[in-house]
Design a protein around this nucleic acid. Structure first.
Lengths: 208, 208, 208, 208
DNA sequence: GATGAATGAGCCTTCATTCAT
DNA sequence: GATGAATGAAGGCTCATTCAT
């Protein structure tokens, strides 16, 4: 007898299986974005996906796994998108700008998924109640800090604590995404422009 | 129909009653900060407070009311703190700086409460799943936008979309608080300095 | 230290005590008539009486005691009212009519109390879930059966099973009271007339 | 929002599902008849049915729904039984008699269900505490009133207020059923005969 | 692969009752 | 006499998960 434990986090499996998992993940994202983490029950997800509750347990070991995958996939996709679009050779100021722009661009077509991911990252905890996504953005921030340091050496950026500034840039960017995602009537384009302008001014060298 | 139990939203009541309510709110804040919104059950709060579950229902009509009060009290306290410390006569650049500093200062001695409030604001929903604290910071942000416009007229600040910039400043500030609150080992002072510097640079006029 | 057990079912006590008990009983009757047995909680009764919950426990050993007293008092009052108004010397047909009329008349000015009593009698159970007011009307019905037998001997009433007929008369009378009590807009007078007519016809001897 | 659990009001579903629901309804009826409305908890019903509490929530949306179905099914079944057995062409006096007889006959083999239904009808309230089964018998009574009027025109019945008389007949009939159901040792047959006789006498024309 | 059924722990809340003051 | 406070059991219900078919 084949146990369903084997499927957990498994990207192998039949084509149909992958399809089903994708369908369930999509439903989960919609439910999360609409009713929030606390009310996102397996029942509601099954309803939304138009399948029985059993199907979900068959394809995912636990509910948490669905949520985790949702967040991880989006995070990974975003990272790949950025890497694709931001060559290492770009000068620092442009590279910083390109990274931020690429991230906003990535989520611009994934509002629901972003909201779902935000719910998961804010609420997902391990069994000891520790935040499961604590520090997930750290490497990203380190990359930005690196760019800032590079730019300082090149004289493009002013003296500042690169690590702190990277966090501030990240927070401002997340603020833009959060606000945009929460209000469907908002247009990301001008918000994005204001953000890029704001950040550029905050870090540029005096003579620049 | 009002029963003679439950002081829901009642600021009157005996000294003992106010004490108990404060004790329960404190326990609720601790639990929220430690295990998160989803796991913050009445049982856990009662355990933490060292009282029976019934006591909580006796003093608060619903669990949500405790959470709401927690958030509202802190928000109100913070607003009062800022108003006290930031006279309207201050010139815009100083006023902006003073506001941010006052807010960070207020939460610096209320880490647990800040975490609890953040959990509540991120998760509290009304019965139709709408975010209950949606737009709660809007008036605050409008105030900052007003300061920015004033500063622009005075030539202290550069041309920018005041409303967008106010949101970016808010997001950066919240990012600092979130990061600090999540990691007990962090020192708010230097983070605060970086933030103030970052914001000042982002908005100052070219000639300044 | 004086325990409150002593008061249970106690008609002695101070004047103030009797007043309080009456006030509580009145409130209990109102609550019962408005929300029904299941929702008639001590809290709601205390609210209605404008006293604290503690007062109720002070004057009555248990909630059930209040309810029991409510029913018993009304039942006793009704019995006394009937006895007062229906002399044993009346001829059977008149006596039957007078009894029914007296009972309707008694409750006519006690709608709330009647509803409360009906709730209690329908729902009150002892600790083994046996109906506490089972057979409470039996002696009344026996009295009516006696009148029927007397009337048969006197040739006023037709041959019939006196005990069964007494039950049927009782049921018809209760039906009138129930319907009237449930609908404030109803006028008891014509209903009463129809009932008396109905019963008289049902039992009268052929030649009468 | 409909979850995929709960068949609330659903007559479709698998054979097994219908069986379970019937089993649960049977257990609920037994519990209601034995301990009364107030003590008829989901736990007790589950115990009686020999299933876990969760099963009940799985098959019925709420406890009230079980009770409502219990009452409605019995009421509907009774109405159908009467319609089947009482042709419209019968002369009024016979038709009246046949209706009453059919109803008693229907419940004669359903003592437990009758008791359960009586508990529900006496106690079920909507959220504003209004009686949920208020006036449920009204159409039935109107039918009887119609028969009485027909019989008056045909000279079979005496002049009387048909609507009032119909209510009295209904009350007498319910009295018989209540008494019989409450006492297992009673034989419905002679009670039924007395009732039919009583009613016939009460309404017949003088010359009949 | 998929499903409906079942479970049992846990949730929030209501409640009758006890008790110190 | 009276009160507010506290208790703990019980209530109905939701839910993630398991499992036989």
């Amino acid at each position: 007898m084949r146990t369903n434990q084997g499927f957990a986090g498994d990207d192998r499996g039949t084509f149909g299986g992958r399809m089903r998992r994708a369908q369930i993940e999509r439903a989960a994202a919609e439910v999360l974005s609409e009713v929030g983490y606390a009310a996102a029950s397996v029942s509601r997800i099954a309803d939304r996906a138009g399948v029985s509750k059993g199907v979900i347990t068959y394809h995912f070991a636990t509910k948490d796994e669905i949520f985790r995958r949702l967040a991880v996939q989006l995070l990974d996709g975003c990272a790949a998108h950025i890497t694709d679009r931001v060559p290492d050779e770009m000068p620092p100021a442009l590279r910083l700008r390109a990274r931020i722009h690429a991230e906003l661009e990535y989520f611009a077509s994934r509002r629901i998924e972003f909201l779902a991911m935000a719910e998961v990252m804010a609420n997902h905890r391990d069994e000891d109640f520790g935040r499961a996504f604590e520090g997930i953005a750290e490497s990203d921030i380190d990359t930005v800090a690196g760019i800032l340091r590079e730019g300082q050496e090149a004289g493009e950026f002013r003296p500042l604590d690169a690590h702190e500034a990277a966090h501030l840039i990240d927070a401002a960017k997340n603020g833009v995404l959060d606000r945009w995602a929460a209000d469907e009537s908002l247009d990301l384009e001008p918000m994005s422009a204001s953000l890029l302008d704001f950040v550029a001014r905050a870090v540029r060298a005096d003579g620049a």
